[in-house]
Design a protein around this nucleic acid. Structure first.
Lengths: 197, 197
DNA sequence: TGGGGGTGTAAGCGTGTGCTTACTTTGCCC
DNA sequence: GGGCAAAGTAAGCACACGCTTACACCCCCA
């Protein structure tokens, strides 16, 4: 699927990459439980036994697929702009930016204890810390959790409950609403519209 | 389980009620996909074939279990106090108020298209309308969606991502934060602490 | 050139699941 | 008491799933 050229078969690295890409796409679309290893291998154009050879189990593949691309956004974004950038990325009408945003895999995998733990430990915690640093209030942790909850809830409405939520609406307008309200919780949040998309 | 007295067996109404109660408890705890009909029948103390005789399918049972108790809160609460009451109910440390709050079943069932549709149509929509009525802004719908998203996100953090979120924190303090920020979106929200628990 | 390890494949094992079927038991009504 | 529909039960069907196994192939290096 990813690698259609006939030459260069028997390439373990390409096979792994193909499996990872297919896994990310399907986990984000359907969540962990409703994605089968047969689906992943099929989309990757690979025999499903290779999935287990290279990753060990479906759960292990999930962990690798979700965390490997993990923390770029967090690393490359100034904390003040974090909320704004997460919003524009989540609200983008571009399907591709949805497909590789692991937050949607989380939101569709809430029923599974193991996958929830992956996100809690590998993604939630760093974001909580980054957001908490945006205020001097002594209940910074609570305020950061509330902001994180809001971002997750917006993604939930957008992706799970109703595909059309916020659809006809200017993302910038939604972002402005949220940033204004969030500023009452975290005083150092940058309320200007985030640069680029 | 519900009906331990030995007299009065062969009571269809009691059997149905017992199945409904067990279903609510397990769906809220584990979500739709991770709850089996054998678990439900077992907790209800009933043969699983009766589940299908009385409700037709697991999905139909889910729909009935979630919507039958459905809209009391919405019906009996003045709109201005809706956000406050939902928060106190969600943040209550009381396990029972979690057990019969269908929002947690939704949050643990996001991977399943059918269950998501139940909530979108049967619960989400009325709440969206009620919240939208709390402002005169011409983008009332967007504002209402954002508030609903926040409430859902808070429930998500509380129940799915981390059992201890907001645990050591005074629920009233969290509620105050949210109500203050929400007031920038919906001008008619009552910011006073909600009456009773 | 000919093993041997890395790569790919087909088939299937074991289990859990939603749901069905064929049957037994109970209690009510004439 | 006898008949009968409603209530309850045991067993299992059919299938999808995660994962394993036994085998075929191909390239590389001694």
């Amino acid at each position: 699927m990813v690698d259609d050229e006939v030459g260069r078969r028997r390439d373990a690295a390409a096979t792994k990459a193909s499996l990872l890409s297919a896994a990310r796409e399907l986990f984000n679309e359907r969540g962990f439980d409703h994605t089968t290893v047969r689906d992943i291998a099929g989309l990757a154009g690979v025999n499903q036994a290779l999935l287990f050879r290279y990753f060990g189990s479906k759960e292990a593949l999930f962990r690798v697929a979700m965390t490997s691309q993990g923390h770029q956004l967090l690393a490359e974004t100034p904390p003040e702009q974090l909320v704004g950038r997460m919003l524009t990325r989540m609200l983008s009408p571009d399907a591709a930016s949805v497909k590789d945003n692991p937050i949607y895999a989380l939101l569709r995998s809430t029923g599974n204890e193991h996958t929830a733990a992956v996100f809690r430990d590998d993604l939630g915690e760093p974001y909580r810390r980054a957001l908490a640093a945006l205020t001097d209030a002594d209940d910074a942790r609570v305020r950061a959790d509330l902001v994180l909850a809001w971002l997750l809830g917006i993604g939930l409405l957008r992706s799970v409950l109703d595909e059309d939520h916020f659809a006809g609406v200017d993302p910038a307008q939604v972002t402005a609403h949220v940033l204004r309200a969030v500023a009452t919780l975290l005083e150092r949040v940058d309320q200007r519209p985030p640069p680029d998309a």
